Simulated scan of single mutants.
Amino acid sequence: MKELVINLLKQRGVKLRSIAEIAYDLQSPYNPGLTLEDCIISVEQVFEKREVQHTILTGLALDKMAEEDNLEEPLATIIKTDEPLYGIDESLAMTIANIYGTIGVTSFGYLDKKKTGIIEELDSSEGRVDTFLDDIVAGIASAASARLAHQLKKEEQAEIS
């Protein structure tokens, strides 16, 4: 299923590297030895989680259904216009961000406001619905970043011991 969701994201224009670049931007100020390759590995590890796979499948299905006019009103319009008070798109994506703890949630909030990299492209896409996808990408990048932060802390503690 991991490969399925990665391919579905690619079909929507989202590459693992694009997500890893966001994770790198989040973590590099705190980890001077961090590489983009480290971030790619971390993103891949996030995709191993079944709850991440299920969240991606759900969000992409809702975006696609809205795009193809297969949702009833008023939900169709709410999702198509990314209604600011809807919040379900963020709630769904925060389940991914929270996998590695609170740091992922705070990073998600930052990305949801700042909209960097591919997140900004998805948020402002014309002619398609990416209401859930932009937040899912932010959730994955946040989780990957949090995973890297925990990994660095573990390495630092091992050096002290």
Rank of each mutant, 00 (worst) to 15 (best):
A23F: 03
R147V: 08
V43D: 00
G139M: 07
T58N: 10
A66F: 10
C39V: 09
N31T: 11
S142F: 01
I96L: 06
D89G: 02
D112P: 02
S142E: 07
R17V: 14
L75M: 13
I103R: 06
T102G: 08
K153V: 10
P74L: 08
D89K: 12
Q11S: 15
A93F: 02
S142H: 07
S42G: 12
T77S: 15
L148T: 08
E68T: 10
Y30P: 09
Y24R: 06
A149W: 04
D63G: 03
E72P: 04
S42C: 04
M1H: 14
T81P: 05
V52L: 03
I136A: 06
V137Y: 01
T131D: 01
A61N: 07
N70W: 11
Y100S: 04
N31P: 03
L148S: 01
V46L: 02
K80M: 05
M94R: 15
S125V: 15
E156W: 15
I136C: 04
A93R: 00
N70T: 03
G13W: 00
A66L: 05
G117W: 01
I160C: 06
E121K: 10
G33V: 13
R147N: 15
Q53T: 07
R17Y: 11
Q11P: 08
E72M: 13
L62R: 07
K154H: 11
D25K: 10
D112L: 06
P32S: 06
E159R: 11
S91G: 13
K114C: 08
L62M: 14
E3C: 04
E67A: 07
K15C: 07
G139V: 02
K2A: 07
Y30E: 12
T58W: 09
N98R: 12
G87Y: 06
A20Q: 06
T131S: 03
E67H: 10
A66M: 05
F132H: 08
I119M: 03
M94S: 07
D38S: 11
L152P: 03
R17H: 08
E126K: 13
D112Y: 08
R147I: 08
G101L: 04
Y86D: 01
I119K: 00
I99D: 05
T55Y: 06
I140W: 00
V52P: 00
I96V: 14
Y30G: 10
I19L: 03
L148E: 01
P29I: 12
I118L: 04
L36E: 14
V46R: 00
E73F: 08
